[in-house]
Amino acid sequence: MLSESAGTRRPGGRTERTRIAVLQATLDLLAERGFTNLTVEAVADRSGVHKTTIYRRWASTDGLVAAALRMGTEQPWTPRDTGSLAGDLKEVLLELIRYFTEPGLRELPTASVLAAFHSDSAAEALHAFYQDRHARSSVLVTRAVARGEVPAGTDSDEVIRVASGPVFYRLFISREPLTPTDARTAADAAAAAAKAGVFVRK
């Protein structure tokens, strides 16, 4: 886990404004340049915060990117309730596809995934971000159990992994185009498996 000295504290006042300015500048530059071309000096120029302050608090670009990625867990996000597990999963996948493919949006999440291959700290932070998303998405399975769609004990993390796996495969492995049909197919498949009890914890 990252320590508080790596920029994970959330003090108020000017210190908090400095944190937000530096980490937002980090995200902007990560999207524009990628991890390997990111420098503390560039973050200092973009944020207006002296590089000495940045080095003292975050130590390196690794620390900056890790703290910036963790900042994503502070943003509000709740999955939609469509009335069915397949419908809920489809909405999550459509949002995921949009986030990774739409110009102006796709640059940051793509750069974040690539950063995880260059930095252990970034990889830990990205893992924490998606664990947070898994936790928030657990409501999809909770609702499905309450509706009688899937059995009690269904592992919500596995439902999300199986539903989103085909999307990430097309994004980063096969480099195939993604369409709403792909989202619906993946959502329907994951929902059907959940209904059959495939994801019930043993």
Rank of each mutant, 00 (worst) to 15 (best):
V49E: 02
A186L: 15
D81S: 10
A31W: 08
V162E: 13
T26F: 08
M1I: 06
G12Q: 14
P103D: 11
A67V: 03
R136Y: 04
E32C: 10
V139H: 05
R56C: 09
A67R: 01
L93F: 09
V139Q: 02
R143Y: 11
R143N: 05
G48L: 06
R143H: 09
S138I: 05
S137H: 07
F172G: 12
W58A: 01
F117S: 13
G148E: 13
K195Q: 15
L89R: 10
A25S: 10
R57L: 09
A196D: 13
L114N: 05
F172M: 05
S119T: 02
P76F: 14
K202I: 05
L105K: 12
E149V: 07
L30E: 07
P79M: 00
A86N: 01
T179V: 13
G148Q: 06
L64W: 01
T142L: 12
G87A: 01
A186S: 14
A183R: 05
S137G: 12
T179Y: 11
L126N: 00
A115Q: 04
V198W: 08
R175H: 14
K90S: 06
E95C: 07
F117R: 08
T181E: 14
V150Q: 12
A183M: 15
V167Y: 09
H127M: 15
I54M: 01
E74H: 08
D155Y: 05
A186Y: 07
T82W: 15
F35P: 02
P109H: 11
D81H: 13
D157F: 14
M71N: 04
L94W: 06
V139K: 01
D28G: 07
L69Y: 05
P109D: 04
R106Q: 05
A111I: 02
V113G: 01
T36Y: 01
A128Q: 10
E4P: 12
D62A: 11
L27Q: 14
V145C: 13
A144Q: 06
G153E: 08
P180F: 15
G197V: 04
G148W: 10
S5M: 03
P103T: 08
S60Y: 01
R133S: 10
L126G: 06
G7R: 08
S112L: 03
K51W: 13
A193L: 15
E16T: 05
E16H: 11
S5G: 04
E102R: 13
R147C: 09
V113K: 00
R46H: 10
